[in-house]
């Protein structure tokens, strides 16, 4: 008996208890619950729209401006943005979001107004509105999601589609001789005297997500402090469904193909400093 005990002693194991650290005092990141409705979004898995919506909501909560912002949704995949952002929002006809935002801002100058637009919306059917809003220097933020394609309607070529890039209307790749060159509309509006802050960001990596959030915050701060012109943030994004790639592949493709053509960074800042 004694002998057995000794033998068994060697088979003792130690059980360590570790309290769960998942308590409210240990939270270091939680998705916004006030400015973002607690509802699933309709976007395809891995789509950048969801990240940008979340960042907007985070900025609204952190700056405590939920009651002061008014958004204008586009026509495109983000047409239902007002189903997710718990703020005042209006829909605009295809491409006219910056014009509608202009009207809202002029009537309610104390509100913080922004338009949220895709590349088909902002740089194709809405090119005129975009350029003139920026040229007039309206005190609004234009948030531009550039995924190089018409996402909502099934992947047609957009003005932003890269040379050689396949889409349903350029099945052999975009031929710049017959279809023209991609439009770098962000570079274009940076040339206009009406814009004060023009930047190009992305949301495919944690570091880029942080930078985009900072840019959004900066833009609303400029507007809050009087605003002396249009803020324009391009977010180079993906469309896994119409690029016909997995979300991870789409981000990799974006990094290798979109970013060399649409390089990230500030194009224009109020202080004149670029980075």
């Amino acid at each position: 008996m004694n002998e057995r005990r000794m033998l068994d002693d060697q088979h003792f194991e130690t059980m360590i208890e570790e309290e769960s650290i998942c308590t409210s005092s240990n939270v270091v990141y939680d998705a916004p619950h006030k400015a973002l409705y607690d509802t699933p979004m309709h976007y395809c898995p891995g789509c950048g729209h969801g990240v940008v919506h979340r960042l907007l909501a985070e900025v609204f909560e952190e700056m405590d401006i939920i009651k002061e912002v008014i958004g204008v949704a586009p026509v495109g995949c983000s047409v239902l943005a007002y189903n997710y952002l718990n703020i005042d929002m209006s829909e605009a006809a295809h491409g006219r979001a910056s014009a509608v935002a202009t009207g809202i801002k002029r009537v309610l100058p104390d509100k913080l107004v922004f338009s949220y637009q895709g590349d088909g919306d902002l740089a194709a059917i809405g090119t005129g509105e975009t350029i003139h809003t920026c040229n007039r220097g309206e005190n609004i933020l234009i948030l531009f999601i550039n995924n190089g394609i018409y996402g909502m309607t099934g992947g047609q070529m957009a003005p932003t589609t890269l040379p050689g890039m396949k889409s349903t209307t350029s099945p052999f790749g975009r031929n710049v001789e017959t279809m023209g060159n991609p439009l770098k509309i962000t570079d274009l509006v940076a040339q206009l005297p009406g814009t004060v802050y023009v930047t190009r960001q992305a949301v495919h990596k944690p570091v880029n997500v942080r930078k985009t959030k900072k840019a959004i915050q900066k833009a609303f701060e400029y507007q809050q402090n009087g605003g002396k012109g249009t803020c324009f943030i391009e977010v180079v994004s993906n469309c896994p469904s119409n690029w016909k790639m997995t979300p991870l592949d789409s981000n990799k493709w974006m990094e290798e193909n979109m970013l060399p053509f649409y390089p990230l960074g500030d194009l224009k800042t109020p202080s004149g400093k670029e980075n």
């Binding site: 003792f12 208890e17 309290e19 939270v27 969801g50 979340r54 990596k205």
Partner: peptide, 30 residues
């Protein structure tokens, strides 16, 4: 580190962090 939560398009991840989490031995068993 929050990386996963930052890139999540659905806002589906909540991250917790604690410095010096105590572990305690509560039992030996066989």
């Amino acid at each position: 580190c929050t990386n996963c939560a930052l890139v999540c398009p659905e806002g589906a991840i909540t991250v917790y962090r604690k410095v010096n989490n105590q572990k305690k031995e509560i039992a030996k068993f066989k």
